[in-house]
C-alpha cells in the first residue's frame, strides 16, 4: 500500500479521523481554536522580552511571531505523531486499514490548525509592519512552497515517531529532551542575522545552522513574508532540503516495516 493509494482509497477515513482530532481538541474549552493562536503569541512575547533583556539588540517581533507559529506546528506534529498509534491501540488491534492513515490524519489535523492560525498571524504581522513602515515581500506568493516543504518535514517526523514510539516507549521521553535542545539551536526566537552578529569570530557558524532543516524552513517563511530577510541560497541549504527528502523516505519505510507488528506490540 503506497502513500498515495492509501490516501485516495481511504480519504474518507483520513478526513473523519482528522475531524475527530480537531473536534476533540477544542471541545469543552471556551476559547477553542483561539488557544492555537494565543499560545504561540504569548510565547513570542515572552521570547522577545527575554531576548531583549539578555542580548540587548533584539530580533523583530514579526520574525519571532513567524518563527514561533512555525515551530509550534512542528511541535504539535511531533506530539501527535508520538501518540498517533499508541493512542489508537483499540483501533489498530481491531480493525484492518492502512496504519499510515493514523499519522497522516494527525498531520492533517495539525496542518489545518496551522493554516487557520496563519489567518490570524498575517493581520498581526501586517499591523506590526504598518507601525514600522514595512511592507510584505512580493515573494509571499511562494508561501505555499515553504508550507509544502514544512509539511513534508513534519509528516516525516510524525511517521518516524509514530512507528518508533510503539517499538521503543522511551521515545516519548527522549523526544521531550531533544525538543528543548532543538528549540535553542533553531532560529525560532532569534534569526540567522542574530547568529551572524553574535558569532562574528566564527563565520562558519551560520552555515552550520543551515544544516538544521528547521533553520531553512523558518528562514524560508521569513524570507517570503518580510523584505528584510534574504533566503540563504547556499550549498548548506540545499543539503538541508535534501535531508528533509531523505528523512521522509527513511521514515516512511521504517513506518511500513514496523507497522506489521503494531497489533502485537500495543
Amino acid at each position: 500500500m503506497t502513500l498515495i493509494s492509501a490516501i485516495t482509497r481511504h480519504r474518507e477515513l483520513l478526513w473523519n479521523l482528522a475531524a475527530r482530532e480537531l473536534k476533540l481538541r477544542y471541545r469543552g474549552s471556551a476559547l477553542g481554536f483561539f488557544w492555537s493562536v494565543l499560545i504561540p503569541l504569548f510565547m513570542a512575547l515572552i521570547y522577545v522580552i527575554f531576548l531583549r533583556l539578555l542580548g540587548g539588540r533584539g530580533v523583530p517581533l514579526a520574525d519571532v511571531i513567524i518563527g514561533v507559529f512555525a515551530w509550534q506546528f512542528t511541535v504539535q506534529c511531533i506530539n501527535a505523531g508520538l501518540t498517533s498509534i499508541t493512542g489508537n491501540a483499540n483501533l489498530v488491534k481491531k480493525v484492518a486499514f492502512p496504519r499510515l492513515i493514523l499519522p497522516l490524519s494527525a498531520t492533517l489535523a495539525n496542518a489545518i490548525t496551522y493554516v487557520m492560525s496563519l489567518l490570524v498571524q498575517f493581520p498581526l504581522v501586517a499591523i506590526l509592519f504598518h507601525t514600522s513602515g514595512q511592507h510584505f515581500s512580493p515573494w509571499i506568493i511562494l508561501l505555499p512552497v515553504v508550507l509544502l516543504v514544512h509539511l513534508i518535514f513534519n509528516l516525516a517526523l510524525t511517521l518516524l515517531l509514530a512507528g518508533l514510539n510503539v517499538v521503543i516507549r522511551d521515545a516519548q521521553h527522549l523526544v521531550g529532551i531533544l525538543l528543548s535542545a532543538w528549540f535553542f539551536v533553531s532560529p525560532v526566537m532569534y534569526n540567522l542575522d542574530f547568529v551572524t552578529r553574535h558569532a562574528e569570530a566564527h563565520p562558519w557558524a551560520p552555515k552550520l545552522f543551515l544544516l538544521n532543516p528547521m533553520t531553512v524552513i523558518v528562514t524560508g517563511y521569513r524570507s517570503v513574508i518580510t523584505r528584510d530577510v534574504p533566503f540563504p541560497f547556499e550549498p548548506m541549504s540545499y543539503i538541508s532540503l535534501a535531508l528533509i527528502g531523505l528523512l521522509f523516505v527513511y521514515s516512511y519505510r521504517l513506518f511500513q516495516r514496523l507497522q506489521k507488528d503494531f497489533a502485537d506490540l500495543l
Partner: peptide, 13 residues
C-alpha cells in the same frame, strides 16, 4: 468483522 464493535468510538463524541 464483528470483533471490533465500537472500535474507534471516542468517549467524548
Amino acid at each position: 468483522s464483528l470483533l471490533e464493535l465500537g472500535a474507534g468510538f471516542h468517549p467524548d463524541l
